[in-house]
């Protein structure tokens, strides 16, 4: 593998997305939404808690939005080029499918991370100027976790881009997956949870004991993993939870959750490379 081939492909992806004004548009959208959440979230309260509330508000909204943004970036990355015809030209050169996939993940990943950094970063600075005692380190941790979360969906969408033989089917698949992780899975899991918990005993208690299977099932939904990870690692959000409603099992640690997110990226990226190798262009 020649690294400069990978870098050339990554650079091209970045240039392409800058030229179609993608980065600017999505960054502005992220910044505006963060500010809106911060402004309405901080009404009637003050201090660092406000950024905490902003983060917990953004965790929900961010998981909706960033998963969409990552899907839009990635679903056509491979199949779109095959359909348009530019992939055959690219692969006729001295490149391999592996280099192309790595280059695409790096390039599109950089676009996604820059968007998150600019969008959330600018908003964070504005909030920081208006609210005293802001812990910027924790805010950066939040941004970092959000980037990793975005990469999970990018990796997933790259995989989708190699599975289907049409761009439109890949888009359909991505939309279905978005609904699955954001809406269908949580509803099913909460539904099962609600019917299996014995509320007569738990209601007496201040702590709601969530069974292990629920936590395990949630590991298969990157959105749940992301929101749990934010809740457990960011101080201010943590303090909301510390009031004592939910207790997590001992094995359900931030490092496990981070590992799961990284595993999602790696597994689907490997699957994307494998599928692309089998594909006829």
């Amino acid at each position: 593998m020649r690294t400069n081939t990978v870098i050339s492909i990554a650079k091209k992806e970045i240039m392409d997305n800058i030229r179609n004004k993608w980065i600017i548009l999505v960054s502005v959208m992220f910044a505006l939404l963060t500010l809106v959440i911060s402004y309405f979230g901080s009404l009637g309260s003050s201090g660092w808690k406000d950024l905490g509330i902003t983060i917990s508000g953004m965790t929900q909204l961010g998981s909706f939005l960033i998963s969409i943004v990552a899907f839009m970036l990635g679903y056509a990355a491979i199949i779109g080029e095959i359909e348009r015809g530019s992939m055959s030209a690219l692969l006729s050169l001295s490149t391999t499918r592996f280099e192309i996939t790595v280059g695409k993940l790096l390039g599109l990943g950089a676009v996604l991370c820059t968007t998150i950094l600019i969008g959330f970063g600018v908003a964070g600075l504005i909030i920081g100027l208006n609210v005293p005692n802001v812990d910027f380190i924790e805010y950066l941790v939040f941004i970092g976790i959000t980037m990793i979360f975005g990469l999970v969906f990018l990796s997933l969408s790259l995989f989708f881009s190699t599975v289907f033989s049409k761009r439109s089917t890949a888009l359909g698949g991505a939309i279905f997956l978005w609904f699955l992780f954001n809406i269908i899975l949580p509803i099913i899991l909460v539904g099962i949870l609600a019917t299996t918990i014995d509320f007569s005993t738990t209601l007496m208690d201040t702590t709601l004991v969530i069974p292990d299977w629920y936590h395990m099932a949630n590991l298969f939904n990157p959105i749940s993993v992301y929101s749990s990870l934010i809740t457990m690692t960011i101080g201010p959000v943590q303090s909301n939870i510390d009031a004592g409603l939910i207790e997590n099992p001992a094995w359900y640690t931030p490092s496990l959750l981070l590992g799961v997110l990284l595993a999602w990226i790696f597994v689907f990226f490997a699957l994307a490379i494998w599928r692309f190798h089998l594909k006829d262009i």
């Binding site: 091209k12 240039m15 392409d16 030229r19 179609n20 348009r84 015809g85 530019s86 055959s88 030209a89 006729s92």
Partner: peptide
Amino acid sequence: GYMPEKVAFYDNL
């Protein structure tokens, strides 16, 4: 050097 039947480039560039 290859010229495909369906010539395509990156339209934004």
